[in-house]
Simulated assay, not measured.
Amino acid sequence: MTDILPQVRTAEPAAEARTRTAAPAAPASRERRTATSATGTRRRLGPGRAIPFARLTGPVLVVLVWWAASASGYLDPRILSGPGDVASTAVDLIRSGRLQSNVAVSLQRAGLGLLFGVLAGVVLAVAAGLSRIGEYLLDGTLQVKRAIPSLALLPLMILWLGIGEQMKVTVIALGVAVVIYINTYASLTGIDRRFVELGESLDLSRLQFIRKVVVPGALPGFFVGLRLAVTASWLGLVVVEQVNATKGLGYMMFQAQLYAQSDVIIVGLVVYGIFGFVSDALVRAAERRVLSWRRTLAD
């Protein structure tokens, strides 16, 4: 009997340890039972597989409702023209070449503003995100600029740069740069410190650290900022093209407002919407290609 007691005492802690070790397995099994339907198949919790061109469903639905309201007489054509009148006006503008010339000028302004703004935003974000001195010098100023709308800067920009193309491109670039900076800087400062310590332990050079740690860590935030920046460039374009402009979509829409031509205004809005949708789709495609190593709910 005395020989058995020590064995029992030693066996009891081992049994308790096995019980404690096995205890967490019970919730997992309950989760598996919960996630499994009555047919024995696992329940899908994600949004499902993406359907090509399914994002066009919303705009198409809006056009159908607009057409139905116009055809039934609920919309006054003097206030909002119907889809048929807008399409006819668009054809006339294309035949006369007026739409193409204005679109070309607007694309040039938005493209230059987007290019300069993205370059400036990335440089500022890298300088502030990788250096305390850069952060102290830049971040506060850019946070203040973020709170100031671009429209409020127009009087000062006109005073400094006049009313020409330089002012228009600068205003667009300022709005784009702030958006790019905010998102890229947030991604840079959000990189896990353990990766930095790992790079230090591997004795990486500054260039290797940027290429292998900083760039992959900042790319998701950069693409989010790029999508917002494309939208910001179009919004800035609408503002600057109504300030002493003689060409551009905004100028065309402003002139149509003076003559109560709602169909011309809607044509301009549709063109803005198409450019915004297409540019966002292009950025999404580039993001999926560059960040193909990620597995997200959007895939």
Rank of each mutant, 00 (worst) to 15 (best):
M1C: 10
I4Q: 14
L5E: 08
Q7M: 15
P13T: 06
A17R: 13
R20L: 11
T21I: 15
A23T: 06
P24F: 03
P27S: 04
P27V: 00
R32L: 14
A35H: 15
A38T: 12
G40F: 10
R49K: 12
R55Y: 13
L56C: 15
A68F: 14
G73K: 10
P77E: 01
S81T: 02
S81F: 00
G84N: 09
D85G: 14
D85S: 12
V91R: 10
D92I: 03
R95N: 11
R95G: 13
Q100G: 12
A104H: 07
A110G: 01
L115P: 15
L115H: 09
L119I: 14
V122G: 11
V126H: 05
G129K: 00
G129P: 03
L130A: 09
L130W: 00
S131I: 10
R132E: 14
R132S: 08
E135C: 03
E135L: 05
L142R: 03
A147L: 11
S150L: 04
S150R: 05
L156I: 15
G162Y: 09
E165L: 09
I180K: 01
N183F: 04
N183Y: 09
T184W: 00
Y185T: 02
A186T: 10
S187P: 02
L188H: 04
L188T: 03
G190F: 01
R193S: 10
G199V: 06
E200T: 14
S201A: 08
R206D: 08
L207D: 12
Q208V: 09
K212A: 13
L219W: 12
F222C: 05
F222K: 01
F222T: 04
G225L: 07
L226E: 02
V230F: 14
T231Q: 06
A232K: 01
A232T: 06
L235P: 00
G236E: 07
G236F: 13
L237P: 06
E241Q: 05
E241P: 02
Q242W: 06
V243K: 03
N244C: 03
T246K: 09
K247S: 06
K247M: 12
L249Q: 08
F254E: 07
L258M: 12
I265L: 02
G268Q: 03
G268H: 04
V270H: 06
V271W: 10
Y272L: 11
G273Y: 07
V283T: 06
S292N: 08
W293L: 02
R294D: 06
R294N: 11
R295G: 00
R295F: 05
T296H: 05
